Simulated assay, not measured.
Amino acid sequence: MSPAQLAAKIRHYPDVLLMCDYDGTLVPLTPRPDLARPDAHLLTLLQQLASRPRFHLAVISGRSLKELQELLPVAGLYLAGMHGTEIATPERQVINLLPYRKEDIPWQDIFRLARQVTAGIPGFLVENKGEAIALHYRLADPGPAGIALKQFSRAIDPFLNKVELLPGHKVLEVRRRGVNKGLAVTYFISKWPRAYPIYLGDDRTDEDAFAALPPGGLAIRVGNWTPCNNCYFLPSPVEVSQFLQQLISG
């Protein structure tokens, strides 16, 4: 289904909750996370949508809330960082959906383990998000990268009662158990219960968000996906941008 056809499906809804992933959905995947930045056209589209009373707009990402705020300085936009556990309102109020003691998981120890296992392997980037660790290997040779990831998975076995490993597009992430984007989706739906809910995402971390949509909600998978029931597809962030443009035009 084309972006225009998808936009036409929701044209008659007076109130719309539009939720999007960031990397691989709004912006293309890049070799390093710091390269995945929005262009002026995307920021304009988001601003136009967020300024319309009909739309409630939120971006839900595994990135930190601070990073999202720097990347997406869009008035009226809700941001959910760290897989949706921390939400920033347009007024910059921060809402924590999963209160916990930060000291109960030794994130620095896990970060050191990741650095040790990947040391000397070209192309690895270990990202310390504070409350999560990401091992990016898009630029690494697949053979050595696979060995290092297996070694790391074995090394953090003692911590797996509190954290979990989540594979993505050339990235392996360590996150707290119980944390997922479905938390933010549920929060936003409860905030606007009469709005028609839509979620766009591109990888495994978005499956929890899709699962949190109520029956009849619109699930739009971006990129290469296996066939599924009750979902639609857009090939890339280019078509996502076209979809957003069609929503504005409609």
Score class of each variant (00 low, 15 high):
residue 89 T to C: 14
residue 112 R to A: 14
residue 148 A to V: 09
residue 52 R to H: 11
residue 76 G to F: 01
residue 191 K to H: 12
residue 104 D to W: 06
residue 231 C to Y: 04
residue 240 V to A: 01
residue 98 L to P: 03
residue 25 T to M: 07
residue 27 V to H: 05
residue 134 A to E: 07
residue 163 V to H: 05
residue 207 E to D: 15
residue 226 T to K: 14
residue 205 T to W: 01
residue 135 L to Y: 12
residue 127 E to C: 09
residue 113 L to Q: 10
residue 145 A to I: 02
residue 152 F to T: 13
residue 250 G to D: 11
residue 102 K to Q: 15
residue 224 N to L: 09
residue 236 S to Q: 01
residue 153 S to V: 04
residue 245 Q to V: 00
residue 43 L to Q: 10
residue 221 R to V: 12
residue 234 L to E: 03
residue 64 S to P: 08
residue 62 G to W: 02
residue 78 Y to T: 02
residue 178 G to A: 04
residue 237 P to Q: 09
residue 89 T to M: 13
residue 141 D to Y: 06
residue 235 P to H: 06
residue 190 S to E: 10
residue 66 K to W: 09
residue 23 D to V: 01
residue 221 R to P: 15
residue 134 A to K: 10
residue 29 L to E: 11
residue 169 H to W: 12
residue 31 P to D: 00
residue 127 E to P: 00
residue 141 D to W: 02
residue 78 Y to G: 03
residue 70 E to G: 07
residue 181 K to I: 00
residue 81 G to Q: 10
residue 144 P to C: 10
residue 41 H to W: 05
residue 97 L to C: 04
residue 219 A to V: 07
residue 124 F to V: 03
residue 88 A to T: 15
residue 148 A to S: 06
residue 42 L to K: 09
residue 38 P to G: 07
residue 38 P to A: 04
residue 50 A to H: 02
residue 155 A to I: 07
residue 181 K to N: 04
residue 171 V to D: 06
residue 122 P to Q: 00
residue 232 Y to C: 11
residue 180 N to M: 10
residue 99 P to D: 00
residue 15 D to C: 06
residue 157 D to T: 11
residue 113 L to Y: 01
residue 152 F to Y: 15
residue 248 I to N: 03
residue 249 S to P: 00
residue 210 F to E: 15
residue 217 G to F: 15
residue 94 V to I: 13
residue 150 K to Y: 09
residue 199 Y to T: 03
residue 151 Q to W: 00
residue 118 T to D: 12
residue 4 A to N: 08
residue 130 G to A: 12
residue 54 R to Y: 04
residue 72 L to I: 00
residue 27 V to F: 11
residue 107 W to H: 09
residue 152 F to R: 13
residue 10 I to L: 15
residue 28 P to W: 14
residue 181 K to S: 05
residue 157 D to S: 12
residue 21 D to C: 07
residue 163 V to K: 04
residue 87 I to M: 04
residue 73 P to V: 07
residue 74 V to E: 03
residue 166 L to H: 02
residue 44 T to I: 02
residue 231 C to F: 01
residue 209 A to R: 08
residue 217 G to K: 10
residue 197 P to I: 03
residue 54 R to N: 04
residue 51 S to L: 01
residue 5 Q to T: 09
residue 75 A to V: 02
residue 133 I to R: 02
residue 167 P to F: 06
residue 240 V to E: 03
residue 244 L to K: 14
residue 168 G to S: 01
residue 130 G to P: 11
residue 130 G to T: 12
residue 16 V to Q: 08
residue 236 S to R: 01
residue 199 Y to L: 04
residue 123 G to C: 04
residue 2 S to Q: 12
residue 67 E to V: 11
residue 121 I to K: 05
residue 8 A to F: 11
residue 64 S to E: 13
residue 36 A to D: 06
residue 144 P to H: 05
residue 36 A to P: 07
residue 20 C to N: 06
residue 132 A to D: 03
residue 215 P to M: 00
residue 237 P to K: 14
residue 228 C to V: 08
residue 237 P to V: 07
residue 183 L to K: 04
residue 199 Y to E: 02
residue 14 P to I: 00
residue 10 I to M: 12
residue 12 H to F: 07
residue 171 V to Y: 06
residue 186 T to P: 02
residue 206 D to T: 00
residue 5 Q to I: 08
residue 26 L to T: 01
residue 41 H to N: 08
residue 7 A to V: 08
residue 223 G to I: 02
residue 151 Q to I: 07
residue 206 D to V: 02
residue 164 E to V: 15
residue 37 R to E: 13
residue 17 L to C: 05
residue 206 D to C: 02
residue 153 S to Q: 13
residue 233 F to R: 15
residue 204 R to N: 05
residue 166 L to I: 05
residue 26 L to S: 06
